[in-house]
């Protein structure tokens, strides 16, 4: 009953939710949370393939490992950036951090 398409579909929904958050939230931290969800969806995809298509693909597992690590790292760097931006302009809202505006 649980088959590859199901897993992929669930991952797709999770990805959509994460995208909704990344696009729709004003606070930078919330955007980062959305990105975390999207990465989580990707990992779910790989695990699904691992289970239902290529069980012996250790490289897949390694991929998930790396993505997990990078999730954390990215969050950390994101927080540091938010702190720095907050010190500079007392706001962490995405709408206000528009200095790269062309």
């Amino acid at each position: 009953m649980v088959s590859l398409p199901v897993v992929l579909a669930v991952a797709a929904v999770l990805f959509g939710i994460g995208l909704y958050g990344a696009l729709g939230q004003t606070n930078t931290i919330m955007v980062i949370m959305g990105v975390e969800l999207m990465l989580g969806a990707a990992m779910l995809n790989v695990v699904g393939f691992l289970r239902y298509s290529h069980p012996d693909a250790t490289s897949g597992a390694f991929f998930v490992l790396v993505v997990m690590t990078l999730m954390a790292v990215e969050a950390a760097v994101g927080f540091a950036l938010v702190i720095s931006a907050f010190r500079h302009s007392r706001t962490a809202e995405v709408d206000d951090l528009t200095e790269l505006k062309g």
Binding site: L23, T28, V31, V94, E99, L100, G102
Partner: peptide, 17 residues
């Protein structure tokens, strides 16, 4: 075209998506 470069992160993300 300048409006593409809004400086708003979510718009960039939307475009990329």
């Amino acid at each position: 075209l300048r409006r593409l470069q809004s400086g708003r992160l979510y718009e960039y993300l939307r475009g990329a998506t």
